[in-house]
């Protein structure tokens, strides 16, 4: 336990000392909200079935926040640890890969939640953001998306040969996902071809789930989404565990 706590503390310091992490996970989402919020406003709109733009966009931004931590910070940090032989050095201590992976999970989840809270608070203050759903269900859905995207990130870290490859794979998955999953640009306005592509992206299911629960829709409407996310997470975790390498 001492091992894990200490590792989490160190990872926390490292995370908040990294400028790119802080910018992309804490500052960038708020900038997006302020930008698009000021363009569209949060007046009830017929485009969004009577909800305000910001009310509809915010759950998507939450997806973006989770994706930054899961698909950028997590795999890049881990693959750098491997490339710089830091993981190998830890192999020669009483600490196992479990503690390293759990601490990455914990720290990035905490960063993600803080960032999400800031986003929501800014939304409430600036745009009178409204929440129509059940807080507990929303939180569970949020954590499900965290687990899903983080296990995708772990999988990228495990299968990529080096830090450069991890970076490339992360970018290739992250950016299309950001724009095509409904996280930043509403899918409602997208042509059919793009909507088809979006069906293949895990974040699409996460964003639809969070958006639905945010706007107070019934959980039973999303059994398929939850199933997809759970199953995919399970597969990804198994792959990343089986392929985990110290060097």
């Amino acid at each position: 336990m001492k091992k894990l706590v200490s590792t989490i503390k160190v990872e926390w310091s490292l995370n908040i000392r990294n400028f790119l992490n802080v910018f992309f996970s804490l500052v960038f989402p708020v900038m997006m909200l302020l930008l698009f919020g000021s363009i569209y406003g949060n007046e009830p709109s017929t485009y969004y079935g009577g909800y305000g733009s910001v009310d509809v966009l915010t759950p998507g931004y939450l997806g973006m926040v989770i994706a930054v931590a899961g698909l950028m910070t997590l795999p890049i940090t881990l693959s750098q640890y491997r490339e710089r032989k830091i993981l190998k050095r830890f192999k020669a201590t009483p600490m196992g890969p479990k503690e390293i992976l759990i601490s990455q999970f914990v720290v990035n989840t905490v960063v993600t939640m803080i960032s999400s809270l800031i986003l929501i608070v800014v939304g409430i203050i600036v745009f009178h953001l409204k929440f129509y759903g059940n807080v507990l269900l929303m939180l569970l859905a949020y954590l499900l998306v965290v687990i899903n995207l983080f296990s995708l990130g772990l999988c990228i870290a495990s299968i990529s040969k080096n830090a450069k490859a991890a970076l490339a794979i992360s970018y290739v998955i992250y950016f299309p996902m950001l724009f095509l999953s409904g996280a930043t640009l509403p899918l409602e306005f997208m042509p059919n071809g793009i909507k088809m592509i979006s069906k293949g992206l895990p974040l699409t299911y996460g964003v639809e789930l969070m958006k639905g629960l945010w706007l107070g829709k019934a959980l039973s409407d999303f059994t398929m989404h939850i199933g997809v996310l759970l199953l995919l997470s399970l597969v990804l975790i198994i792959i990343s565990y089986k392929t985990f390498k110290y060097e």
Binding site: V10, S13, Y81, R84, K85, I86, K88, R89
Partner: peptide, 12 residues
Amino acid sequence: VQLQETAYPEHL
């Protein structure tokens, strides 16, 4: 153990 070419996390 001391290994050849171990780096440490930056910013530590």
